[in-house]
Design a protein around this nucleic acid. Structure first.
Lengths: 183, 183
DNA sequence: ATTATCATGTAAAAGGTTACATGATTTG
DNA sequence: CAAATCATGTAACCTTTTACATGATAAT
């Protein structure tokens, strides 16, 4: 599925692997991420399939860049994927919930400590979505005249992350409180 | 991490692979899942490491069962993992959000259709958490006298799933409404 | 009759992470 | 002077999924 993330981004404009990684880190991190090593190998595979073409851009003072451009085949593949409805829910894996499920043998203080660490991490993620991510999206939308729909959807997706993190923090607060009272 | 799910469940009582799969499907599905093939290979690896021991239980009218029992080494490993705090957030991958992010080229009706399919799937997941999952947990807790903490944590984890699905359905409603108005 | 359940496994492939390898420039 | 940034890639490994393989009994 990383292939569609890359095709989707390269459908905005050509980029190199390093820049794709930066784009994902700043804009898609809360719903899709990848390591550089996987981005490079996936770009190579997409070019071999004819979905992308690359050209080397020689730079002075900086290493050369391999710029990838989406082809018509790539656009068709992206379109077909966008049109296909998702008829399943993505099954989630939540290490924290797995740990809490089996944590009855831990003592109260240790369990609460675990939950508080997660609370601060999720609060930070929520702040990032409301701050940096919101700013990146607003800026990109403002530079994208004539394509207002993009901006609406980017914001909708950001909002999904915000609701999800709000719910997580609320659950952590609820649960810390419950354990303080009942353990 | 499946290893800790299996060690955690086998710490309640010995089971075979097939039964572990059923347990996970009915109780842990919303935060951890695995295919039978992976469960079998992981059990084998855990036994090779000395975390589990297995014995074959011969049955009439049914295929034989390989029952797995946790060892002291397994209990120690489980304990060490439970005590280690989780200092990172699990990065999520949400195919629906990936699709919506790039979906500006779809027409309004198609996009709304995609979101409505997901709405019904997430509503069904929410109903399952409030129905079957809640019942399974309540029943298991009632049969677990003297270990009330287990039941409190099982319910807390179920509640996390409920809050998460509620937030998802709310977001889908918000987004369907936004697209109906602004696209 | 057909489908579901019970029951265990192996093999191949795909997806993803970690480690290795290199090296210049810029910022602190 | 050290660390971060820019920049690309390969190799080994781990995790997970899909497909293959078998076969009896119970339910519809």
């Amino acid at each position: 599925m990383l292939r569609y993330a890359l095709l989707g981004i390269l459908n905005y404009r050509p980029m190199n692997g390093y820049e794709l990684k930066q784009f994902m880190d700043s804009a898609t991190n809360h719903f899709w991420h990848a390591k550089l090593s996987q981005i490079y190998t996936t770009l190579k595979a997409l070019e071999a399939e004819g979905m992308l073409i690359s050209t080397v851009l020689t730079q002075e003072d900086r290493p050369d860049k391999r710029m990838y451009t989406i082809t018509q085949d790539g656009r068709n593949d992206l379109r077909a994927w966008l049109e296909a409805p998702l008829i399943e829910i993505e099954p989630t894996k939540e290490p924290l919930l797995l740990k809490v499920f089996f944590a009855a043998q831990l003592d109260k203080a240790q369990l609460i400590a675990h939950l508080r660490v997660q609370r601060s991490l999720h609060q930070a993620a929520l702040n990032a979505l409301r701050g940096e991510t919101a700013a990146v999206i607003a800026h990109a939308a403002s530079q994208n005249k004539g394509r207002e729909k993009d901006g609406l959807l980017w914001e909708a997706v950001r909002r999904a992350g915000e609701l999800s993190e709000e719910a997580y923090v609320r659950w952590l607060d609820e649960t810390i409180h419950m354990i303080e009272e009942n353990f």
